[in-house]
Design a protein around this nucleic acid. Structure first.
Lengths: 211, 211
DNA sequence: ACGTGACGGGACGTTCAGGTCCAGAACGCT
DNA sequence: AGCGTTCTGGACCTGAACGTCCCGTCACGT
């Protein structure tokens, strides 16, 4: 997430440590609220109150609400990718994939599926409206798929996954299953559909292992 | 969709043919706008203009915007289920599943993935806010899964699908793959991820056929 | 210590969406 | 045909959310 903060601070060079801290407080508070309530239901006054700042700060750091939303999208993108990189950068076995699945399911079970995936929810809410944010999120999904695909390729290199399996396609399928699972779980307020979706995707990968 | 209309007309018994027509115009216009622009970005004035009605009509037929949103959710639910029932009620072979996939992909390709699935988009946008609408959508997903599961069971009965396959779990996985595919396609403005997601799910079903 | 520029607070303006109301037109029934 | 009921139109109200502004405060360099 430091990436996102620095990317913007580079655009506005004069920024003291205090200012940067305020900006970070704003984005983090907004990220939390927008995840829980949705982007549209989160007002700037909510953000102001939650971040302990004031209106002028919001408009000191962001041109308008859309700019804040974009910053929030970048923050979630960085957070999710950091988390996933930690899980996937050393992925090299089917069991690693199972552990990945379990971590995601457990995390989502803790809130009964509510809120879904921060990226997925933002994507549907924002993609009709803000092209820039949509492209950020699209690139993030692609990066996420790449992390998975790299892991699958390592499984191929070490002879665990059949070499004729299409790692990129599998990665897209896994992320789609995950996102679809998030959506069904969120709608049903129940993690079970997410488990089923991921298990089916993993079952499919299992059929492609070198037995 | 007649179901949804009748369900409400039953609640408000006094309603002339003209009134019913007005109500239907409102819901249909709102459904279109909310699908394309999103629920939140659609104002009642938009609906009024698009339906060729007036404010008082909206509030004559619906208590508030949330009630209209619920009616729209019911309309989409009925529309999607009617469409899917037409495709799936006689599903009895793997090729039927492939045709189902092709129809969905083709339909979504026509708009480059934009807007996604009406049900899925509404679900994420509404589920944090309106429990009733969320439950309608959740029930619709379940019904949809059931249509698929019934088809899969027919494939088992006719000996095409292995009897130890879990039809319900497969159905959930297929719908999740579809919804995840919709989401990725919408974010990328490209149908390809949806194709990959569905193909992976179908590949998995293929491994469960009686060879 | 003193001045400059960034930071901070919050009152205020403006717009716009949701929701109300009432008078008149259309309908349907006897 | 006449009358009550329902439907229709659109003006109007209200509140809330976005965005502006101005002045006070703080930090840092000289």
């Amino acid at each position: 997430m430091s990436e996102a903060v620095e990317a913007v601070s580079a655009r506005t060079p004069r920024l003291t440590a205090r200012g940067a801290a305020t900006r970070a407080r704003i984005v983090e508070a907004a990220a939390e609220l927008m995840y829980v309530q949705g982007v549209n239901a989160t007002t700037l006054d909510d953000v102001r109150a939650a971040s302990g700042t004031s209106k002028s700060q919001l408009y000191n750091h962001f041109a308008d609400k859309d700019a804040l939303v974009r910053a929030v999208a970048e923050l979630w993108a960085a957070r999710v990718l950091a988390r996933e990189e930690a899980h996937l950068s050393r992925l090299n076995s089917f069991n690693g994939l199972v552990r990945w699945r379990n971590a995601l399911v457990q995390r989502n079970a803790a809130q009964n599926g509510a809120y879904g995936c921060a990226l997925g929810s933002m994507a549907t809410e924002v993609s009709d409206h803000d092209h820039e944010a949509r492209e950020t999120l699209s690139a993030t999904f692609q990066r996420w798929e790449q992390l998975l695909a790299d892991g699958l390729r390592r499984m191929q290199d070490s002879g665990r996954l059949r070499p004729d399996a299409d790692a990129d396609a599998l990665a897209t399928g896994l992320i789609a299953a995950l996102q679809g699972g998030y959506l069904l779980a969120q709608t049903a307020r129940n993690v079970r559909p997410m488990e089923l979706a991921l298990d089916m995707a993993l079952d499919h990968v299992r059929t492609l292992l070198t037995s």
